[in-house]
Amino acid sequence: YLAEYLKSVTNISGQLISFMLILFGGANIVGNIIAGKLLTKNAIKTVVVFPFALGVVYIILFFVGQFTWPMAILTLVWGIFAGIGTNINQYWISSAAPEAPDFANGLFLSSVNLGTTIGTAVGGLFISGMGTQYVVLVGILSLVLSVLFILPRRYMQRPISQLSK
Rank of each mutant, 00 (worst) to 15 (best):
R154G: 01
I29K: 01
F19G: 03
L125R: 03
V30E: 02
R154K: 08
T75L: 06
G55L: 07
R158V: 12
T75P: 02
V136N: 02
S8G: 11
G129S: 09
K7Q: 11
W78H: 08
F63N: 04
L151K: 07
K37S: 09
D102L: 15
V147K: 06
L6Q: 13
L38Q: 04
L145M: 15
E99K: 10
T117S: 15
L107E: 00
F63Q: 03
W92P: 00
D102Q: 09
G26C: 10
A35E: 06
S95R: 07
I160W: 02
S161L: 09
L21H: 02
W92S: 06
F126W: 03
V64Y: 05
G83V: 11
G115F: 12
I140T: 04
I73T: 10
E99Y: 12
G131Q: 01
F62E: 00
L16A: 13
F103W: 14
A96F: 10
Q15L: 08
M156W: 06
L76M: 12
N89W: 01
L137N: 01
L109Q: 09
K7G: 03
R153D: 07
Y134A: 04
Y155V: 07
S161P: 00
P98T: 08
K45M: 10
A53M: 12
V49R: 02
I80E: 03
L148N: 10
N89P: 07
V138L: 06
W69D: 07
T117N: 11
V135W: 10
N32A: 11
W92T: 10
I150S: 04
M156P: 00
Q162E: 15
L109E: 02
I160V: 13
R154C: 05
S95M: 02
G85N: 05
I84V: 13
F63E: 05
V57H: 04
T116V: 14
I29E: 00
T132F: 07
L6I: 03
F19L: 15
F67D: 04
P70C: 14
I44M: 07
I118H: 03
Q162I: 12
E4K: 08
A82N: 15
I29W: 06
Y5L: 02
V49Q: 01
G85W: 06
L148W: 10
S142D: 14
Y5G: 03
